[in-house]
Nucleic acid binder design. Structure first.
Length: 668
DNA sequence: GACTAACGTTTTTTT
DNA sequence: AACGTTAGTC
């Protein structure tokens, strides 16, 4: 037997999971049952058994989760082994597969990945071209429909709405012409190349002999197909998940994958982890009483290993201002009275828009906090622009980045010229870049535009030559280019506040530094661009560096835990969200709340408001129906007013609520 | 083509 | 309330 680094600290079910190394394995791991620990131990044990690290693949849901898992394994076994394993998302796995074999599908190997605002920009142009502008269709709506179809394994031309189907075709052709793919194409083409090319398939099956898939409840039909291609006999595949925590149905996730796993991978060993180590009995009981209301789930007996603990509080708030103030004061009080760290507190909400008042309340009290989510770093304008220039260094024929920066900063190539160039490129079946280089096209233009275009072409070509012919460091070349075009002054001119300016400047330098670091590690420019496109993860370093209370959406909170949790906005329309009510997906909202509740280790406070400001207007709110579904055994129902009255005797709080009243009066 | 002012829209969740 | 888009002006 191996030197059991962890065996003795595991419970019997966890031990069984670690020991079950061969053939298909399904681990059904309820919230807080030590899932990550079990999975990392299981992989560490593989390494212990001298399975070569390069044969191990672990697929996670986010890049951050991948980094974490790798780190934890590194802590248990050798750093070297952890480095040699493949731990990544389905999407980055597919990039890996496609960088080697996409030419088999008729793409050039230097394909680019179109994501985020570039994708919306492309769709927006298509809407204009195809006359969908009058109907005020949102590009994101079309992209969403296309994405959904692709992930369900449908052809986008099958989309019900004819106009959408046409747009889907145009969108696909456009990407195809640019040798570009979107996120969904990565999976689609990855699966296709494995399915159609036995040599590629065998290569990867030989390479990844041991596959683990985390957060399996969030995989969709397409990812399941991919997994089937990737895993051959004798099916050393392990999936880990919890159907109660499936919250990505809107992205095509199918809990059916959990139920159907055994159909694809015969007679799997099924192991249940049901002992919850995270939460108090009060929290867990409350969570269980809620999730019970979902039909068609795998019944689970989640057992608390901890004592009852503090009662769960449900607080009725007059409005969202009071809610924010109350929580901020609670954090302040909890920090000093109970000796908690800022990091012990988390505030969970349904939509990103709900964070603003909370942020303000925290900032007023100088409570440090970190916002997880919100706008992705990589979708910030200046970052996108810099990356677009980087991409032009690699492949100037990519229209999307080219059109993005053709006039950023302003260089005298306005919209009308850009449209002319695009049309010319379409007529001549070439890229926009090629059109710009074409003397015939230039002759069509006025002298001013022509000179501007010639300068632009010279700029990009010059930079490309420095890298390709001169062998210069791409990071240096890009930095010089950014300086040469006076990008910084231009972007700063559009800023209203100083902090905005600082932010932009920081974004630019962080991007350039990141590239420099990546190049220093010996990576190619293309690789860096790929990593950025896939890492829609937030500023990871920033996240780890920054200390403080956590503000986070319910979705992003999955997999995390906090000693003290505030869950706000339990109102009809927010939780469940009105859209989910309309679409008949309230079950998923219930799971979302379940995920939120089970994040709490020691204390949980949920709140709802009678009114809330939306679109600058005050609106009345009803308490969420979910509240009535909860079992009250461990719940303390109170209201803002109750707490005001009850705490009136306490000196330190007296002041606070006095102040609060004062503020309210001012508002009124 | 660039800049400004008025207008209208917005808020689900993310690889 | 705040942001992005659009129309109108120089």
């Amino acid at each position: 037997m191996a030197s059991d680094f962890a065996f003795e600290s595991l419970n019997p079910a966890q031990r069984e999971a670690v020991a079950a190394q061969d053939g298909p394995v399904m681990i059904l791991a309820g919230a807080g049952t030590g899932k990550t620990r079990t999975v990392t131990c299981r992989i560490a044990y593989m390494l212990e058994r001298k399975i070569p690290a390069e044969n191990i693949l672990a697929v996670t849901f986010t890049n951050k989760a991948a980094a974490e898992m790798r780190e934890r394994i590194a802590g248990m076994v050798s750093k070297k082994a952890a480095k040699e394993m493949t731990v990544c998302t389905f999407h980055s796995l597919c990039v890996r597969i496609l960088r080697g074999g996409i030419d088999k599908l008729g793409y050039k190997k230097n394909f680019s990945i179109c994501s985020g605002s570039d994708q919306s920009g492309l769709m927006k142009r298509l809407l204009v071209r195809m006359g969908g502008k009058e109907e005020r269709i949102k590009p994101e709506a079309v992209l969403g429909a296309i994405s959904k179809a692709k992930n369900q394994g449908l052809d986008p031309t099958d989309i019900e709405d004819d106009f959408y189907a046409n747009l889907a075709v145009a969108y696909h052709n456009e990407l195809r012409a640019q040798n570009a793919v979107d996120f969904d194409d990565l999976l689609l083409l990855g699966e296709q190349v494995l399915r159609e090319h036995a040599d590629v398939r065998e290569h990867f099956r030989q390479l990844y002999r041991r596959v683990t898939v985390d957060e399996f409840q969030d995989t969709n039909a397409l990812q399941m197909k991919l997994l089937q291609q990737l895993v051959g006999e004798p099916y050393h595949v392990c999936v880990v998940g919890d159907d109660d925590q499936s919250i990505y149905g809107w992205r095509g996730a199918e809990t059916a994958n959990i139920l159907e796993f055994e159909r694809f991978f015969p007679s799997p060993k099924v192991i249940r982890l049901e002992e919850n180590y995270r939460s108090t009995q009060a929290v867990l009981h409350t969570a269980n009483s809620l999730i019970k209301h979902n039909l068609g789930r795998r019944e689970k007996a989640l057992r608390a290993t901890r004592k009852d603990g503090e009662k769960v509080r449900i607080v009725a708030m007059p409005g969202d201002d009071e809610e924010a103030e109350f929580i901020a004061e609670e954090i302040l009080a909890g920090k000093s009275a109970a000796g908690r760290k800022w990091e012990d507190f988390a505030i969970l909400f349904r939509t990103n828009g709900q964070s603003r008042k909370l942020e303000m309340a925290l900032r007023e009290r100088k409570i440090p906090y970190r916002m997880v989510g919100a706008q992705s770093f990589y979708d910030r304008r200046e970052v996108r622009d810099v990356m677009a220039y980087a991409q032009l260094m690699v492949s100037p024929d990519s229209d999307v980045p080219l059109l993005r920066v053709i006039n950023a900063p302003n260089r005298g190539i306005g919209n009308s010229t850009a449209v002319l160039a695009t049309e010319w490129s379409r007529e001549h079946h070439e890229s926009v870049w090629q059109a710009l280089c074409d003397p015939e096209f230039r002759n069509e233009l006025g002298g001013k535009s022509r000179a501007a275009i010639e300068a632009f072409v010279a700029l990009i070509s010059g930079a490309r030559n420095k890298i390709e012919i001169g062998g210069a460091n791409p990071a240096t070349v890009l930095e010089e280019l950014i300086n040469e075009i006076d990008y910084r002054p231009w972007i700063e001119r559009g800023c209203k506040t100083q902090s905005e300016k600082d932010q932009r400047r920081e974004g630019i330098s962080m991007t350039l530094d990141d590239l420099r670091g990546s190049i220093a590690k010996g990576r190619k420019l293309q690789r860096w661009i790929d990593d950025c496109a896939l890492a829609s993860d937030r500023e990871e370093d920033d996240l780890e560096r920054k200390q403080g209370a956590t503000l986070i959406t319910l979705h992003a909170s999955k997999g995390l835990e906090f000693p003290i949790v505030f869950l706000v906005g339990l109102e009809q329309g927010f939780l469940p969200h009105s859209r989910s009510v309309a679409e008949g997906t309230v079950d998923e909202e219930r799971r979302l709340l379940y995920v939120g509740i089970t994040r709490a280790q020691d204390e949980l406070t949920m709140s709802y408001c009678s009114q809330r400001v939306r679109y600058g207007q005050t609106m009345a709110c009803e308490p969420s129906n979910f509240i009535t579904e909860l079992d009250d055994t461990h719940i303390d129902h109170t209201s803002y007013d109750d707490l005001l009255g009850a705490e009136a005797n306490s000196d330190e709080l007296d002041n606070f609520f006095g102040n609060l009243r004062g503020m309210l009066d001012e508002v009124d």
